[in-house]
C-alpha cells in the first residue's frame, strides 16, 4: 500500500484530460450553509470501476459531500463532473443507497421497489421482471419478493436498497453509511456481500463510512477527511490487498493502525481536544 498526499493530485487537475474522463471529478468543491463553510477545496478524482471509501470524523461533511455528488444539492463552489459532464441534478446514472431504509417505498413489495427505477425509465414489463429476478438473486432476497419493507429485517431492507439501485444500472453508486444502523455481525455479512457484488459488477462506488475496518475491507482507496468546519481531504490510502480481505492479516492491521491514528487526530481536533500522540502529518509517518 502507498500513501499519497493530496497535493500532487490537485496539480494534475489543471492538465487537459488526455485520458478518458474520470467517473467522478471534483475540483475545488466547497459547500456552505449560510455563513457556515462545511466543506472547502475538495479535489477528488474517482476512476471508472474504483471503490472509494470516504472516512472522517462525525459532522465533517461526508454526507454533505455525497449529496452534492448525487446532484441533490449544487456545490457552493468548484466543479463537479461525472464522466466529463457537470452534474446538474439527481439522475439514474448516479445511484444512491441511503443510510436509512426510510428511503424504501413501504407501500411497494420488494420486487416493486427493485422495479421502480426501470419502471420510471419506461423499461417494458417483461424486461422488468427479468431485472427484478436477477437482482433479487443477487442480494439473496428471492424468497421475500412479495413482502413489503416493514416486514423485513434491517439488513434485508438495506439489501433491497442496494438491489433497487443496481437494478437501475447506474454508472456510479453512492452509498452513505448504508450499514450504519446494523449490528456488528449483520454488518460484517453485508460487507462481504457488497464486496462480492461489487467484484461481480465492477461499478464505480463512493462509500461513506466512519468504520475503518469497513473502509479497508471494501475500498481500492480510502480517503480521510479533516474535521470540519471547512473540512477537506486529509490523506488518501491506496489499498492493494487481495480480495476478499482478511481483517487479521498483518498488512490489514498495519493499515488500520495508520488510518486510525490519522482519524483520531482529526476527531480530537473536531472535539476541541489536544491532539495527543499524533504529531506530524500521516504522509511522513506511515510507510508500509
Amino acid at each position: 500500500m502507498t500513501i499519497q498526499s493530496e497535493v500532487p493530485m490537485t496539480a494534475t487537475t489543471a492538465v487537459p484530460p488526455a485520458r478518458p474522463a474520470p467517473a467522478l471529478h471534483l475540483d475545488g468543491v466547497g459547500i456552505t450553509f449560510g455563513d457556515f463553510t462545511a466543506v472547502e477545496g475538495v479535489d477528488l478524482d474517482v476512476r471508472n470501476g474504483e471503490f472509494v471509501c470516504l472516512l472522517g470524523p462525525s459532522g465533517c461533511g461526508k454526507s454533505t459531500l455525497l449529496s452534492v455528488m448525487a446532484g441533490f444539492v449544487p456545490p457552493s463552489d468548484g466543479v463537479i463532473e461525472m464522466e466529463g459532464h457537470a452534474i446538474k441534478g439527481p439522475c439514474p446514472e448516479l445511484g444512491v443507497v441511503f443510510q436509512s431504509s426510510d428511503a424504501l417505498f413501504d407501500w411497494l413489495t420488494v420486487s416493486d421497489n427493485i422495479a421502480f427505477g426501470p419502471r420510471m425509465r419506461g423499461v417494458d414489463k417483461a424486461r422488468r421482471a427479468e431485472i427484478v429476478e436477477e437482482h433479487l438473486r443477487l442480494v439473496g432476497l428471492a424468497q421475500h419478493a412479495d413482502k413489503r419493507p416493514p416486514q423485513l429485517s434491517g439488513g434485508m431492507r438495506q439489501r433491497v436498497q442496494i438491489a433497487r439501485v443496481l437494478a437501475n444500472e447506474p454508472e456510479i453508486v453512492l452509498m452513505d453509511e448504508p450499514f450504519g444502523a446494523l449490528d456488528a455481525q449483520t454488518r460484517t455479512v453485508m460487507q462481504v456481500e457488497l464486496d462480492r457484488i461489487w467484484r461481480q459488477r465492477q461499478s464505480t462506488v463512493v462509500f461513506v463510512t466512519h468504520d475503518i475496518d469497513e473502509a479497508i475491507v471494501l475500498a481500492d482507496r480510502v480517503v480521510v477527511m479533516t474535521a470540519g468546519p471547512s473540512a477537506g481531504i486529509k490523506s488518501t490510502y491506496q489499498v492493494d490487498l487481495p480480495r476478499p480481505r482478511d481483517v487479521d492479516s498483518p498488512a490489514f492491521v498495519e493499515l488500520r493502525h495508520a488510518i486510525r491514528e490519522d482519524i483520531t487526530a482529526e476527531v480530537a481536533k473536531s472535539l476541541g481536544l489536544p491532539t495527543a500522540g499524533t504529531t506530524g502529518t500521516p504522509e511522513q509517518e506511515v510507510r508500509a
Binding site: 439514474p92 421502480f116 425509465r121 439501485v165 437501475n168
Partner: peptide
C-alpha cells in the same frame, strides 16, 4: 421523508 423523494429522483 426527504430520502424517499431523493431516492425517486435519483432512480430516474
Amino acid at each position: 421523508e426527504e430520502s424517499k423523494l431523493r431516492a425517486a429522483a435519483s432512480l430516474g
